[in-house]
Design a protein around this nucleic acid. Structure first.
Lengths: 195, 195, 195, 195
DNA sequence: GATGAATGAGCGTTCATTCAT
DNA sequence: GATGAATGAACGCTCATTCAT
């Protein structure tokens, strides 16, 4: 019986190898070795190399989404929701540096790599942001001249690039709190009506 | 034909091909065909495939830097300098979509692709941002709790991700002005002391 | 289930799969699926993939040989014996098109596939022909300038190629009788002393 | 400039390797080594492994067809035409044993190997036979109860199988003349009206 | 006996790079 | 300088076979 364990082990190993070498320089045999399985075993769990990447993106981003959604669903204050979003995203990135690296680099080309794939979890992820902003606008907290569809991108782009500090070597290592505060200072202040 | 011309023709062609297929799926013969030269000719102007990518990044980003530097050097007001930076970056990205695509995707992995290369033009580019912010802080315009090294990344990340709207198909096509205003609204407001 | 049954089920399935895909493109898992057994089960009954092919050839050709031998053994007239041979061979081929396909194609390469194997049933099969011819020559019915060792091949080659009409699609579908008559007209007439 | 010489050298080498090992057991590297070119060079002249086989069949059978057509075109007597056909085919097979082996074995599966391919030279080849037979029937030389479409197959099958004597080891080695005479004795006699 | 997940050797094909012309 | 035919290392993927359950 194909085990869920092995599927997961391969996902984790692939994330590590993709993070280190990048998708194209990653060899199936690298992943197999890392996962301590035979090359052929990979193909019992995934259709091809692309499929592994997609699965990493979908499953691992999916987990973060789930976490954040759970953390947010109790909240009603958009301000606090965004605070949570920022904090959760940054801690996830700081904790799982392999996944962070993959998101930084491979997420960008995933659409091009697999024609049939329009990254869906990712879309869902950044749409969480625009939804919160819209809510804030309805509640009169956020300026209505902010376009949520642009702001969500600016917001995610900033978060993503900022979190690269932890994966690019030779940088001052700021804490999650410090970094969160910066993003909050910049964005949330910028969005408020009472600014 | 003068060899500078041919060098340039190859750079332009490579940018186009990298934009369309991505670095790894681009073949030297694709670039050669696009540039209307023989495969071997490429190697009279570049050491290897990586070297072409590095050259694209350095030379083309270099041009934008030069433009922005020239436009900014007259200015003394940090606020206006950032306005110019935003506007110039976004128009450059909207104008040269091939380069935009390459920056979005290939810039991220350039460090990993060529070990000896730490993208330098790019570093110079985003350091322009932190320098302006520092200046603003010195002039008392910007809040001193903003960390320029984080803010520069947030700023660039936002700009970059926002400009992807123009290269990912199926999006509402906002104008440069609209987009600029959004970034300004978010960031500049957020940074001001008098907020 | 008795193991003889399973052995047979695998032989039948293999014949079907070999016929459809050819030996090299046939996968063990195809045969297993067709036989509704697990892949590993095949190896309880056969040593390896080649062994399955050899078994198909030996056992299935063996059955035809047996049938023909039984039908002929009562006969004493070589002319009638050959008539029976022709008719039996052609009906067998028309009835079991899978086996026909395998004989047409895989029989030819069987020697090469398995070094230790010189197809023996087949040899026995076509030697039936030369024996009958020799008998006919002894009885003065057939011309003595006919070399039985060449004639047997010509005879079998003709029969085999003619029976491909039924397995190659898009051909006029002649009946066994029509086809038999043609072979008889050509060969038997050609061999007779009183021609 | 891609040379015709190299194309030919590869065809010859491939024929040799296919003859010795069979299509499926032949390695591209075997063919390359035999032709004294690099593996990759093969792909400058052929699309893929199948393409090599098809080319061997088409080009080499094509040559034989040409030879026979040229030898026959002067003739008007169907009897003599068939004599020539038999003699030319058998000498070609005896001379080029590699090609003979490929025809014996790989021709049979060529249709299955390449879906787009219905061997055309071969069709043309055996249709030469039925045309001659029809002519003979029109001239009243051959019996009209012979069906040319069946007879052509019987005729070719006999020729082909008979010529295997020269490629299967351990057989008495008959001469082309002896073998021709046997086929003539069997077939031509069998077809004549004045038999 | 039966299963099917796991193995890993093996190969067709690609493509960056070279170099004789 | 320019060409493009030739090279051959490299890798994704397949599938016959094994063996723990």
């Amino acid at each position: 019986m194909k085990s869920v364990d092995k599927h997961n082990k391969i996902i984790i190993s692939a994330t590590k190898v993709f993070a280190k070498k990048g998708f194209f320089n990653a060899r199936i045999s690298d992943i197999a070795k890392e996962a301590k399985v035979a090359d052929g075993t990979i193909y019992l769990y995934f259709n091809n190399k692309f499929d592994i990447l997609i699965s990493v993106l979908e499953e691992e981003i999916g987990k973060i989404i789930e976490q954040i959604e759970k953390a947010i669903e109790q909240e009603t204050d958009p301000e606090k929701m965004l605070n949570i979003f920022i904090e959760k995203h940054l801690s996830a990135m700081k904790q799982n540096k392999n996944l962070a690296e993959v998101i930084h680099i491979e997420l960008r080309q995933s659409d091009r790599l697999v024609k049939e794939y329009r990254n869906t979890s990712f879309k869902q992820y950044i749409d969480m942001i625009s939804k919160i902003i819209k809510k804030g606008q309805e509640l009169g907290i956020y300026r209505t001249d902010i376009l949520p569809d642009i702001a969500k991108r600016a917001f995610f782009g900033a978060l993503d690039e900022v979190s690269r500090i932890w994966t690019t070597p030779g940088n001052v290592q700021y804490s999650v709190e410090q970094t969160s505060e910066q993003i909050i200072a910049l964005f949330l202040t910028g969005m408020r009506t009472t600014s």
